[in-house]
């Protein structure tokens, strides 16, 4: 449904995308995951015909994003990262406006937005600028869907949204997916990766890996331990000095470490830390999460 090949984009000296390729299948919920400045927005703006790539090509529903942009715009629903509806028009006026410029009406595609729009319909007379953050987002999604697009592209829809609304939002996306809409969504939150069918991890304009969330973590080769002690700061320093330890990163109250070889045992490491006067030491082998994989891939890429 969406296919990008070797896309490059620079803004002056800054390289935003360095040869990005990806493939999104029809009906898929695809996540584009990476930190701020990774190139997510640039890639998305290229796919929705708002930006021309310097090199490479991309098609959405077999339509080229540069040559067939006119036809393509009717088939894509795009929700930019920043709220971009008219704050001085009411909820209903915004909806009617975007329906009309796409040559349709709210009634015609009401079934698509019903679930979402019903939640904000009681406030349809209210100006969009006076809605709460969560409602603004629902309105933006409704407006992006009102012309019954085949593909829905969302740029960081959950950034700055509270946990409950985030969960709700992903449930809405799942329902839209069931209606047959292909969805490409970008997010800086690693934990949202598990909600996608497949994810692409992107960093510094490069795609690190593309796979299902399960596979991404399974393919992780290194052994991962969670370590903690009373003095975390010294613990990081001492662990980094240990020749068998490859990486140390802080993850909440634990440190996640990967090992250079599998010969060290947890007890040996505990002894090593005890010798350096650490107390309350806990070492548990754990299953890697997306974030661990991301850190690992980033390290590999940098080397």
């Amino acid at each position: 449904m969406i296919s990008a090949e070797n896309i490059e984009k620079s803004y002056g000296e800054v390289k935003a995308l360095r040869g990005v390729s990806l493939e999104v299948k029809e009906g898929e919920l695809f996540g584009l995951i990476g930190p701020d400045g990774a190139g997510k927005t640039s890639l998305i703006r290229i796919l929705v015909t708002l930006l021309k790539p310097d090199k490479g090509s991309a098609t959405v529903n077999q339509l080229d994003v540069v040559d067939d942009f006119r036809k393509l715009r009717k088939q894509i629903g795009y929700m930019p990262g920043r709220f971009s509806l008219y704050p001085d028009l009411s909820v209903e006026e915004n909806m009617t406006f975007f329906a009309t410029v796409f040559g349709t009406t709210i009634e015609e595609n009401y079934h698509l937005v019903k679930d979402i729009y019903q939640q904000i319909e009681p406030f349809k007379e209210r100006l969009a600028g006076r809605l709460s953050g969560g409602m603004k987002q629902k309105l933006a999604l409704s407006c992006a869907l009102i012309h019954a697009p085949k593909v829905l592209v969302l740029d960081e829809p959950t950034t700055g949204v509270d946990a409950v609304s985030r969960k709700e939002f992903w449930e809405m996306l799942k329902r839209l997916q069931k209606m047959g809409i292909t969805i490409l969504v970008s997010t800086p939150y690693m934990d949202e990766a598990n909600l996608c069918d497949r994810v692409a991890l992107i960093q510094d304009g490069n795609i690190l890996t593309i796979n299902t969330p399960e596979r991404v973590t399974q393919n992780h080769e290194s052994i991962l331990w969670a370590v903690r002690s009373d003095n975390m700061y010294l613990c990081i320093r001492d662990l980094r000095k240990h020749p068998g330890v490859k990486t140390v990163f802080g993850f909440g109250e634990f440190l996640h470490i990967t090992l250079r070889d599998n010969t060290i045992s947890p007890t040996a490491l505990e002894k090593y830390l005890k010798e350096r006067c650490h107390t309350n030491i806990a070492i548990n082998p754990i299953e890697p999460g997306i974030e661990d994989v991301f850190m690992d891939l980033m390290q590999k890429h940098d080397n």
Partner: peptide
């Protein structure tokens, strides 16, 4: 400035 241009530009206007 308010970003509505971004949304308008993906419409067939």
């Amino acid at each position: 400035e308010i970003g509505t241009m971004e949304q308008l530009n993906v419409t067939p206007i």
